[in-house]
Computed example of a mutant assay.
Amino acid sequence: MKYKLDNYKVGEIAKFYGVSVDTVRFYDRKGVLKPEKKGDNNYRTYNKEEFISMDYIMRLRSLGISIENIKKMASNVSLEESLEVVSETEREIEAQIRQLENQRRMIKGYKAKLKDCAERYGIVTMEQSPAFIIKDIKTTMKETMDAFEKLQLSTLPLLGILIDSERYDDMELYNCFIDRTQRQKICNYIVAASDYEGISKKPGFPMTEFEIIPPRRCVHIIGMDYTNIDYSSIKPIYDFIEANHLKIIAPPFLRILALENRGDAGVEYTEMWIPVE
């Protein structure tokens, strides 16, 4: 298209800027562009003023500025007001960058967990657990996850189970756990996140909303089980405790790390922590 400054048709200005006709018409409807209407059919034509406005729109859109704010900047506002709009957008982008950086840290940690699922399942170890921030699912999962989101953790909160039983030092607990009906009597469903950064110890942490499981000496295993069919992969952890003459000193706790579809059955990869002495 030969360069000119007036009498653009909507298709021409769209092609010139590499956008769709609908995009140009959207700017028309928002009042950011004000093309002249000509003829009985009210065909829109775009002159020098709209050409410059369209260029301004494209530059500001490339900065992530909203159409509403572009309309404000293109109206009768001062440079100081335009500067505040741009500064506001800058603050929003900086907040998005912080969120993306946090998500990247979460992804890095979760990748390590998935790698553990592939390489370490079924292996019983003695480890110092991290601190965990946990929250009972008392209402909805959305409300529970919203509470975690406010903490701005760098680790991913995961669905978990906290064993609620006075018999947690008894082998009978293992038998209850692998039985679906009995399991419902002893399991509290929670959401739990590792607290490697010590968020729970910082001033202002909402202690009334969460429970903290401190770091403890634990027997640990990543199990691979068929959902609601077979949870026998946790048996080696009890065998390990018995063979090493260990005593369970607090309720066991587990988190669901990943799921895998194997035909008619789903597979759960879970990590289990049992505090011992």
Rank of each mutant, 00 (worst) to 15 (best):
T181F: 10
Y196V: 09
H220D: 10
L173R: 07
V191N: 01
G198D: 03
V191D: 03
R167K: 14
I161T: 09
I212N: 04
T208F: 06
D179G: 04
F148E: 02
I163E: 05
L156G: 01
P157W: 00
L158W: 02
Q184I: 12
K150E: 15
V191S: 04
A147Q: 11
P157C: 04
K150N: 07
L162A: 10
E211S: 11
Q184R: 15
H220N: 13
I212G: 04
L156I: 10
L159S: 11
S200K: 00
F210H: 01
V191H: 02
P215K: 09
T155S: 08
S200W: 03
M171I: 10
F205L: 03
A147V: 11
R180I: 14
L162Q: 14
G204N: 05
Q152H: 13
H220W: 08
K202R: 15
I190H: 08
D179F: 05
R217F: 06
D170C: 13
N188G: 08
V219K: 02
I212R: 01
I212T: 02
L156M: 14
V219M: 07
H220M: 15
P214A: 06
Y168L: 03
P214G: 08
Y174H: 09
E211W: 00
R183M: 11
I221C: 07
T155A: 00
L158I: 09
P215W: 04
D195K: 05
L153G: 04
M207V: 14
M145W: 01
Y174V: 00
E211C: 03
V219H: 05
D170K: 12
R183E: 12
S194T: 14
N175S: 12
T181G: 08
R180S: 09
K202E: 13
F210A: 02
N188H: 14
R183I: 06
